[in-house]
Amino acid sequence: MRVLLHALPWLAAIAAYFLMPEQLPLLSSIAIAALFTVSLDLIVGYAGVVTLGQAAFFGAGAYTAGLLAQNGWGEPLSGLLAAAAVATVLGLITAPLVLRSGALAGLMVTLGLGLMLYEAANKAAPITGGADGLQGVEVWPVLGVFRFDLYGQTAYLYSLAVLFILFWLAKLIVASPYGLSLRGINGNPRRAPALGVPVKARLTAAYALAAAYAGVAGALLAQTTAFVSLDALSFQRSADGLLMLVLGGLGSLYGALIGAAAFTLAHHALSEASPIFWQFWLGIALIALALFGRGGLMGLLRKLLPRGAGS
């Protein structure tokens, strides 16, 4: 029973591949959004550090992979690794700035750093293409075999495979003693040091880990769409990520998957009607989630499913 529940999202994702062959780009964007949401869940949901600037790492990863491919190195897997490395370094550099001061000042620092990076990419048009975006990204076949096709088959399966691997790595990490210490810090940051938990070091590692995840998500977007725009770094992306996270349920990795899927599908359906309409209902959803509880969709599911399933 439990094994089946754990397999369910992935079976659904594979079924979608066969059932919705015209919607593969949408499905890819769900997988990428899910990975981004997992990254936010690690830092916000588990470690308890609220950030308004996670898009900085997503964008850094996207531009890293995009620039590599644009400049003649289109090998996708090494592109992902490079993106992860750049995002990790950026995370390690900025973590002390974010964690140094109190929660509120740290929150604003994440916002400021995110905007700084956006503005830097905007002004560095000769390298990034500025507002026109990064053109001429050419990605080689995955593993030298699977060419990125027009229908997005390779793009989807590639994104899904990366999500699958990193999702289970995240599952492992949150269940480890390290993951437990993050939950302890989140629950009571003043008590944790009295148990000998080195709070700063643990949070720095979590921040960098989440940055790496976001960087890989950004790189996936760059590689599967062969394009990077400033949107990758935008405040909107950070805010969307937070919404996907709370929509699915904070501190639950399956929630991150569900939230990303629900959000992306709703976005697809509503913004076709009108972008203003979408923005309005997005705002209403945020307000409702903030006022009426954090469980999100995962919280609802937990009430319906047997105890212990999917945490």
Binding site: A175, G179, R191
Partner: peptide
Amino acid sequence: QLFAELSPREAVVLAVSERAGAGGTWWRPV
């Protein structure tokens, strides 16, 4: 000054793992 969201067992496991120097272990589940 407790950890409201952890179970009592998890809280003590956390304390024990930190004392035993295992608090940084991320590659295996508790």
